[in-house]
């Protein structure tokens, strides 16, 4: 683990808890899919928890994030609760978006989450625009744009990075390189060095181990503070790994990646296991305490899933509601 910044054990345990919450949420969502209780598909964030948590723990509630189709992790890390998230995944009225968004469009504006986005790279403009608002109105807010290595193929991202650099906007581009855009390795899709994309625009870039929550968090704290101070934009390349397939139905993956590779990441690079070991070694928590935390979160998830399963669907008349916002 990276050398930690000065923090009390509560902050460390909160990071651990947030990562476990994401893992348990995803395991529960996968189970809902496998038991045919969930409409549609969903994209698992498992394996990448240290990225979302390391960054979001450096943000305040008022700071904005934009998320991706693989967005449950960002949503949890920014403060969302299980009950409304599971309701949204199941298309229920009590979901964050009254069931109209689903897994790929969860937005939680009260916590600064401007929404997941089902267009790869599609939220680059939204995050950068949120930063434009912050600068124009002098709010001091920072925006983080989460995107995967797949989005490096989208022109929109570079247009937005160009404007962010021209106008010194308080936005952090967080590129989660989980090695695969859908079913294809990043080396087949992105020419040149990934970090060069930032330097081409004169944007300060940092590469960090995305499996090390302390390293991610320490870097994020520095960059968020500097962005708040008008020194942005920044680019982060977070090297990580996606445990599941592109989506829950992507079961047979041998044609694009090996079992050995998956096993290597899960057994040696798992962000939760490694951080848990560190917490125990540093005597910040006992093994039993961590086990109890896992059990508590699983219980919470089970209750939320059961609640969502029995929750009501939106009323049929809601289908035409929210096409347009009211203008007073």
């Amino acid at each position: 683990m990276a050398k930690p910044a000065q923090k009390n054990s509560d902050a460390y345990l909160h990071m651990y808890r947030q990562m476990v919450k994401i893992r348990v949420f995803e395991d529960s969502a996968n189970e809902l899919y496998l038991t045919a209780k969930m409409p549609g598909l969903t994209h698992m964030y498992s394996g990448q928890e240290a990225v979302a948590v390391g960054i979001c723990e450096a943000l305040e509630t008022r700071d904005k994030i934009t998320s991706t189709h693989r967005g449950h992790g960002h949503c949890v890390a920014k403060g969302a609760n299980f009950k409304q998230m599971f309701c949204e995944l199941l298309g229920k009225d009590e979901g964050y978006c009254h069931g109209k968004g689903g897994s790929m469009h969860i937005a939680d504006q009260a916590n600064g989450n401007l929404g997941a986005n089902a267009i790869v790279g599609g939220s680059a403009g939204i995050a950068t625009g949120a930063a434009l608002t912050a600068k124009t109105l002098g709010t001091g807010d920072v925006a983080v744009c989460f995107f995967g290595d797949g989005a490096l193929g989208q022109g929109l991202l570079y247009e937005c990075m160009n404007m962010a650099a021209l106008w010194d906007l308080p936005v952090i581009y967080a590129c989660e390189n989980n090695l695969y855009g859908e079913y294809t390795h990043v080396s087949e899709m992105a020419a040149g060095a990934l970090m060069d994309r930032a330097s081409a625009f004169g944007i300060e870039g940092h590469e960090v181990d995305g499996q090390d929550v302390l390293a991610v968090n320490e870097l994020s704290q520095q960059l968020v503070a500097r962005a708040r101070n008008g020194e942005g934009p920044f680019f982060m390349l977070l090297n990580t790994y996606r445990y599941h397939g592109h989506h829950v139905g992507d079961i047979n993956r041998a044609y694009y990646r090996s079992k050995e590779e998956e096993t290597f990441w899960k057994e040696t690079r798992d962000p939760i296991t490694n951080f848990g070991d560190w917490l125990v070694t540093e005597k910040l928590a006992s093994f039993d305490e961590l086990q109890a935390l896992h059990a508590e979160i699983k219980t919470e998830a089970k209750a939320a899933v059961n609640y969502a399963l029995s929750a009501a669907y939106p009323a049929v008349e809601d289908v035409t509601e929210h096409v347009f916002a009211e203008t007073v």
Binding site: G125, I126, G129, T133
Partner: peptide
């Protein structure tokens, strides 16, 4: 055009 229209979407969502 896509970039600055995208910025406008995000700016509109956050108060401009």
């Amino acid at each position: 055009e896509p970039g600055f229209t995208g910025l406008a979407v995000g700016a509109a969502m956050t108060g401009l």
